[in-house]
Design a protein around this nucleic acid. Structure first.
Lengths: 336, 336
DNA sequence: GCCTCAAATGTAAGCGTTTACATTTTTTAT
DNA sequence: ATAAAAAATGTAAACGCTTACATTTGAGGC
């Protein structure tokens, strides 16, 4: 069933049918109705591929993320998809994992499918080694590239992100002010956001004229679900002689691990150990005691990102970036 | 840059270029190399829309789910996407929410995009009212429809699911055997799987010649993140005079709520209250104490589903369904 | 009733592939 | 060297839309 069949049955030309389908003006109401009826009767749906070929778009956006099963990424993907569809766009999801080659090939795949834009969810798409980011630039030379939670300066690349630096700095200061100075900073990603958070942590110490001790900056290499691994990791640190009465974690999973650790070693929370998570995710309320956590306005970030994308696709000039601020959500793992 | 440009530069016909691109046999190695080089030089990528039009497929599968931010669904989507891509297919994600109209329109949208198949993730796509499932049948008349965690008999519909009935029945029996008889069953979805689980719960009581009390079958209407809501819900039940020493929950979030409830009311777990979750998700290890939970082999379900789909798309006859069995993962919220 | 102009509709040329079929080139057998 | 067969390549017709441009229809003013 094609537009041609419809045109025949309706006794009009295919152009008219097309106009009806696309809600074009200048179609006599009577004709319109007749065509609509025939379309309805036949349950006809225009061929999206042909449409795509003619218009050079299928209103599709590529969403790239490392791992959509990560609770935070999943939420971002969810919001983005809904916002996009609300604007008449579909989403092709690609989970790349953390390997650079996989990221590159996934991105190429999306571009070869002629998506209208690529949204990269997560700061892990920015490589430490600057040259490795060429793949992002290459993509941006073809379509608008939108980054969520990352910061990257290049034409046709837009970023929405939370000021992770400041958020962690503030959280660290709050902890320092409450009298805790042996604060462990726990992170798990070599990427932009992890490092920004670390810097925030460090700067709080500097600001207080306190020494920044490398030992207190720990990198966890397990998966995003390995709460027990985090617990073991902390236990090992503890047994290695490291003493800490505060933990600032780069995400709630790590913070959950710290909570587990505290329970295991009968540290009272927050009396003996204060813990601050990041993302304000479901994990922060699942934990016991519930996690004090930094909220980074994920939904707003997503909304802003999609809004900006729509503007860009509509011909607006693309802004460089939008930075939101984080908020410390106080719960039971801190004294304040 | 089109195939035509390449053909010109290489001094061959577009047919030959096409053959090279598609790895067709019967191309002289020398010609092949020449064409490849030109393609490489120009960074040419074939137009996917044109290809789609010619082949009537873009190797795309639609993934339909209520809410991909739900921890369990997110994981399913993740696995499915990766398996599909491993087979050369891309995924269009559509989050429908729980409204029937939205489900219908999302499904139509996917079909209008000419996906090769639709995968529906979650039992909530099966409506209680049988007539309402016509939309699934309509879809199945067009493309293979694959259901994850649901059971639906219709030509061209395939289901992979866990035997939720048996899994919950066994779990309930285990709890009954441990001497607990006032067991609350907590669920939150009107859909197929929730009801199957409920039936399993009921049948365990029947099997033990114990009365099945409606009061102990409670339906929670909050969101999939509302742990506190669950806690409040249980508190209300308790204050309403309902006594229970066991909770079997249809998912880990509900079980987490029960754990919260127990802490709040100083019930000891598992001495005063035994709790069994479902899905064996991250929440079950985030909880304290960690949840005993039913694992339903999600990754295997997904793998099986994709494998079957590939067979079907390859021309194999579609099997009806595959049923996996659940396993009780024993942790700290039960005595056994 | 006729002319002008606007509205409605039609015609046909793309869009960039794939592929059946036709043609040319190469190989093999004699 | 030649005929037959096989391999390689080319030609051109789909695939099903959109849309610029051409044509027809209709309305309004005189």
């Amino acid at each position: 069933m094609t537009i041609y069949d419809i045109s025949k049955q309706a006794g009009v030309s295919i152009a008219t049918v097309s106009r009806v389908l696309n809600g074009s003006a200048n179609v006599k109401p009577k004709t319109k109705k007749k065509v609509m009826d025939i379309i309805e009767q036949n349950g006809y749906t225009p061929n999206a591929f042909a449409r795509g070929l003619g218009l050079d778009t299928m209103n599709t956006i590529g969403i790239l993320c490392a791992d959509s099963s990560d609770i935070y990424i999943a939420k971002a993907v969810y919001h983005i998809e809904r916002f996009l569809r609300g604007c008449g766009y579909n989403s092709i999801l690609c989970c790349t994992g953390y390997d650079l080659q996989d990221k590159k090939s996934s991105l190429s795949l999306l571009l070869s499918r002629r998506v209208d834009s690529v949204i990269m969810v997560g700061s892990n798409f920015i490589e430490t080694n600057a040259e490795d980011n060429q793949y992002i630039k290459d993509a941006a030379d073809q379509v608008p590239v939108m980054l969520l939670n990352a910061d990257f300066d290049y034409p046709n690349v837009y970023c929405t992100l939370c000021d992770d630096f400041k958020a962690v700095q503030d959280a660290t200061l709050a902890l320092l002010d409450s009298g805790i100075e042996d604060i462990l900073f726990l992170y798990n990603s070599h990427s932009y956001s992890g490092k920004k958070k670390l810097t925030g942590y460090q700067s709080a110490f500097l600001q207080k004229d306190l020494p920044v001790n490398k030992q207190y900056q720990q990198f966890f290499t397990g998966t995003h679900e390995d709460i027990e691994g985090v617990c073991n990791f902390l236990t090992a640190l503890h047994e290695g002689g490291l003493e800490f009465h505060g933990v600032i974690a780069a995400d709630d999973m790590l913070a959950s691990g710290a909570v587990k650790y505290a329970r295991l070693h009968h540290c009272r929370i927050p009396e003996d150990l204060s813990i601050i998570g990041y993302n304000n995710s479901l994990l922060s309320t699942c934990c016991e005691p519930e996690l004090t956590s930094i909220d980074n306005q994920l939904e707003n970030l997503c909304s802003q990102l999609v809004k900006t994308l729509m503007g860009t696709l509509g011909g607006d000039e693309m802004p460089g970036k939008t930075i939101f601020s984080g908020t410390l959500i106080k719960r039971a793992t801190t004294k304040f």
